[in-house]
Simulated assay, not measured.
Amino acid sequence: MSPVDVIRAHYDASDRGDLPGMLAPLGPATTWTEAAGFPYAGTYTGPDEVQRHVFEAIGRDWDGYRFTLADLLDAGDTVVGVGTYTGTHRGTGKSFTARVAHVWRFAAGAVASFEQIVDSAPVVAATREHS
């Protein structure tokens, strides 16, 4: 599969709620960076860390958390997914919508890195009782 096909399969798995399918393209050395200012900010390595620090945390903290893909841009060994996050925070009951871009980089035919670029302000505001 081409890089864009690999990432399309990741997003298709996300739409199905298929976590193993979402993690499938990540290897043990793949780095996954959540943006500074985002509730799960940091860089995690490999599918186990990504599952624990990102997807399990999102599942714990949010209802209906979703990424809706608007554009998938094929630049060869770099693939960019552009879309929107939505969700409702379990602790506050507040919902949000935030624009986001995901930058996927491939090396030797495998996912080398993922970087999230996001408008974190609406996400953080939804986590606060008083904003």
Results as ranks from 00 to 15, higher is better:
41 A>D: 12
85 Y>T: 10
5 D>T: 11
18 D>L: 11
85 Y>I: 11
63 D>V: 10
79 V>S: 01
39 P>T: 12
43 T>R: 06
63 D>C: 00
44 Y>K: 10
107 A>K: 15
76 G>Q: 13
104 W>K: 00
109 G>K: 09
6 V>K: 09
8 R>G: 08
91 G>F: 04
68 T>H: 05
22 M>Q: 00
111 V>K: 04
103 V>H: 00
54 V>Y: 10
43 T>V: 09
74 D>A: 13
57 A>S: 15
8 R>N: 12
112 A>P: 11
127 T>H: 05
2 S>Q: 15
89 H>D: 03
128 R>N: 13
23 L>H: 08
127 T>M: 06
51 Q>N: 13
55 F>H: 15
107 A>E: 15
17 G>E: 10
88 T>M: 07
119 D>C: 13
24 A>E: 07
68 T>N: 08
49 E>R: 09
115 E>P: 10
8 R>S: 13
63 D>S: 08
53 H>G: 00
125 A>M: 10
75 A>W: 13
8 R>E: 14
9 A>W: 01
83 G>N: 03
73 L>F: 09
111 V>F: 01
107 A>N: 11
101 A>M: 03
12 D>S: 14
122 P>Q: 12
46 G>H: 02
115 E>V: 02
28 P>W: 07
1 M>Y: 12
108 A>L: 11
1 M>L: 12
35 A>R: 13
85 Y>V: 05
3 P>D: 02
80 V>M: 09
53 H>T: 02
68 T>K: 02
100 V>G: 00
28 P>G: 06
41 A>I: 15
121 A>H: 06
64 G>F: 03
21 G>D: 05
109 G>P: 05
40 Y>Q: 01
12 D>L: 14
45 T>F: 08
83 G>I: 13
18 D>E: 00
42 G>A: 02
99 R>H: 10
85 Y>D: 05
81 G>V: 14
13 A>W: 07
71 D>F: 15
74 D>Q: 11
45 T>I: 06
94 K>N: 09
28 P>A: 12
44 Y>C: 03
62 W>K: 06
21 G>M: 02
53 H>E: 13
